[in-house]
Write a protein that binds this DNA or RNA. Sequence first.
DNA 1: TCCTTGACTTGTC
DNA 2: CGACAAGCCAAGG
Length: 115
Amino acid sequence: MNCRACSDPGKMPVFYQKVYAITARIPRGKVASYGQIASLAGNPFAARAVGNAMKQAPEMLSLPCHRVVRQSGELTACRSFGGAGGQRKLLEAEGITFRENGYVDMKQHQWKTEG
DNA sequence: TCCTTGACTTGTC
DNA sequence: CGACAAGCCAAGG
């Protein structure tokens, strides 16, 4: 663990700062996919880079990374939220509903920037 | 500069 | 639905 941001977020790469800014823009009760964020960042195909940005996202920014899910609605590697299922509880607390398969209902909670 | 890594996405079997 | 492969991008060594 050597996140440069652990010392100063201003030292983070440009792309990362965008991802953080966008992720922070995710309204409560909504979820955004990596592709969504990547697109807002300027690269709709940089979903992987977005994931990396989230991974390095310093907790000091309190980024709602738990609102970031896959395009399919499946949660991320929530191993960072205090154990598998922790992310789901957080989202449920936000008012987000889940399908019986455990996926987020993107049709209802997918963050739409057009609105 | 090149290669590797990764919390992604889509298409095919 | 599950598993595999190909393609996209940025950061780090």
